[in-house]
């Protein structure tokens, strides 16, 4: 295949977009090594400065106490994300699976009913959540906040899992039925092991939401010790409002774990949402 003019254009476009996506990440981590003056005098310079590695140490240790540093924010984010995953996947997998055996019409109806939830503005939910959590004594409790994110993740998780299970080969399920596996054991022994990829994909999408959103956690998690990285980062930024080096170092540290998790599981994500999204 000869290289056509069109193909060159494609390569240029793809390279430009990749640069546009990657350069900010590189800049932020490099800014983390710079002084204020170096950041402002030459924002484009990636090499011509003396690296201040200490910025990263400062950022890692910053916090009003050892209970509220970036490390603690990570732990809280982890708690929220795991709770959210357990809730959303734990309910959406069986729900999406068994719903796929209903008639097409009923499956559609249920799906519509479930995804209607996505049109509720999140900002509208925040005040009722706060009042309920307050009267239940659940404020500043990352586990409880995780349940909220889990619940809000259900519509997408349910949709994607359901679309996946509809495409699941019926012949295999019938074989399971004939072998005397009941419906539950068919799900756990036969279907789940074959759905790992999809589950990981949906899980990552949910994880990203729980990890990055701050509309909800900023209201439900007010004490710094209970805050996840998304909210902790805001007060962290406040702490370094005039000291950009350590601030960018902190932003880098905050972004790295989720990027690594994403890179590890990215092949599932590509397949998982592609499959789910394609369905009608």
């Amino acid at each position: 295949m000869k290289i056509s003019f069109g193909r060159i254009i494609v390569y240029i476009a793809v390279t430009l977009w990749t640069l546009l996506v990657l350069l900010p990440f590189i800049s932020v981590s490099v800014f983390g090594l710079k002084s204020n003056t170096a950041i402002f005098s030459n924002p484009l310079g990636l090499f011509d400065f003396v690296p201040i590695w200490e910025n990263y140490v400062i950022a890692w240790n910053a916090g009003p106490s050892s209970d509220a540093t970036i490390g603690v924010f990570f732990v809280n984010s982890g708690i929220i994300a795991i709770t959210a995953l357990v809730v959303s996947l734990g309910l959406s997998i069986p729900g999406g699976y068994f719903t796929s055996f209903l008639t097409r019409k009923w499956n559609q109806r249920i799906l519509l009913f479930v995804i209607v939830g996505t049109v509720v503005p999140i900002i509208m939910l925040v005040i009722p959540y706060f009042r309920a959590f307050n009267s239940l004594g659940l404020l500043n409790n990352p586990w409880a906040t995780g349940v909220v994110y889990g619940a809000l993740n259900i519509p997408t998780a349910f949709l994607l899992m359901n679309r996946f299970f509809i495409d699941f080969p019926r012949e295999m399920l019938e074989a399971g039925l004939i072998d005397g596996l009941g419906p539950i054991r068919t799900l756990t022994k036969l279907v789940l092991p074959l759905s790992k990829g999809q589950i990981v994909a949906v899980g990552i999408l949910n994880l990203v939401f729980a990890w990055t959103d701050y509309q909800i956690s900023i209201v439900l998690l007010t004490s710094r010790e209970s805050q996840p990285i998304s909210v902790g980062l805001l007060s962290f930024i406040g702490d370094f409002s005039a000291d950009y080096g350590p601030m960018f170092a902190g932003l880098t540290l905050a972004s790295v774990p989720i990027l690594i998790i994403y890179i590890i599981f990215s092949r599932y994500v590509t397949k998982g949402i592609a499959l789910g999204g394609i369905s009608k």
């Binding site: 005040i127 307050n134 209201v219 004490s223 007060s235 406040g238």
Partner: peptide
């Protein structure tokens, strides 16, 4: 125990916290 709040929070959102169990 010191709890930091932002300039933004002290003028508005803090109201919810101050009238809560927290």
């Amino acid at each position: 125990e010191l709890q930091g709040i932002t300039n933004e929070a002290k003028g508005g959102p803090n109201l919810q916290v101050l009238t809560s169990s927290e």
